[in-house]
Simulated assay, not measured.
Amino acid sequence: MSLHRPTGLRRRAATLGLAALLATGTTSAAAATPMHPGTRLGEVRVLAHFDRAAGQAAESIALEPGGGVVVGMIPARQVVRVARDGSVQVLVTMPPPPGGGGTTPVVGDPVVTGVARSGSGALYFLYSAGQGGLTGIWQVRSSGAPRLVVPLPADTMPNALVIDGERDRFLVTDSTGGRIWQAPLHGGTATVWSADPALAPGSFFGANGMKIHDGAVWAGNSDRGTIVRIPLTRGGGPGRAEVRATGLAGIDDFDFTGRGTEILAAINQSSQLVRVAADGTHETLLDAGDGMQGTTAVAVRGHRAYVTNGANLTGNDSNLLLAKLQQH
């Protein structure tokens, strides 16, 4: 990968900053400074630690009003809410499939992955169980009993969930199938929106994280290490896919910083938070040497970025970080 890694004083500042973060929960110094103009990180702190031993590997983030977020927990099969003060509340724990599971494509065990919040405040999440009637888009309900809104085929691995409010639909990446599905927001039948070859996996995961931005659907391809832009046609269909960034092997989720098409990307495989410029060049802001462990998701709200570490491939500190963004 053509990533620029922190060196010298910048490495020392990054290490000391995150060491203080892990020890005290906050640091006022910049955790790392990019070598090129663009978004920088200011204060970085741990907002919440999760119980990794209980399966709480943080996977995805949905922003809520007031500074709170909702997070999907992979093997714990949970959706949790993290309040602004860092307190954690379990909203849903999905039951395992009959027989205990083990049939989810590639990953085996049943998992909760993407989460999303609609404009009306409804919360949705993805459950992949390797079985029909369980795999699909579910809604969190105040009664505590989740509701299956959109079933997906048992052989899919739904990963990222996005609500396209303009078109009243869900979009879902299928990581093992290399596809993006669409379904009505009110529920019903899902259909394949795009099966472009740029979304296809190599040996594990293809299309993973996804966002709608700048008149297009953007998706990361984990195996190919790419970010793909698919323009939206006037009718909401897919245009011709184009690769906008390469060299990002293991990319998981990502989000836009508010600076055009600049992106902050979570690189799960190498435990990195990477800034991707509009021209596709990229550099590491935080990495494993800074305490990152299986970085999974990014969500930006104004001048703040939420970052999850799932500790699913390395380490044992599954957490939610909060960082200030400084644009130069």
Rank of each mutant, 00 (worst) to 15 (best):
D196R: 10
P231N: 09
Y127K: 06
F205T: 09
P201D: 14
G310C: 02
D164V: 01
L16S: 06
N221M: 06
I212E: 03
V228T: 15
Q293D: 14
P65A: 15
V69L: 07
A23N: 04
V71H: 06
P197C: 13
G250F: 12
G114Q: 00
D155A: 14
G206H: 11
P151V: 10
T233P: 12
G294K: 03
D174A: 09
A241E: 14
L3Q: 08
L171Y: 00
M292N: 08
T26H: 04
G66N: 09
R167D: 05
G114K: 00
Y127Q: 09
G99Q: 14
L126Y: 05
G25V: 02
A13M: 09
R244T: 11
G17Q: 02
R169Q: 07
R229Q: 15
V140K: 06
P34H: 02
A20L: 00
G291S: 10
G38A: 02
P158D: 11
N316I: 02
Y306D: 01
A160M: 03
V172F: 03
N208Q: 08
A219K: 06
V80W: 12
I180V: 15
S143W: 12
V70H: 12
T295I: 10
A216E: 09
D174W: 05
R234L: 15
G215Y: 05
R259D: 15
G38W: 05
G132K: 07
G114S: 04
F170Q: 02
G119I: 03
D317W: 01
H213Y: 07
S194V: 09
E166S: 10
A57C: 13
A277Q: 12
R12D: 06
A311L: 02
T191V: 13
V217A: 05
G42H: 05
E262Y: 10
L313S: 04
P151N: 06
R234H: 14
D174Y: 08
V111T: 13
G130Y: 10
D214T: 00
I137G: 08
D109H: 15
A305P: 01
T284P: 01
G302Y: 05
G72V: 09
G119A: 08
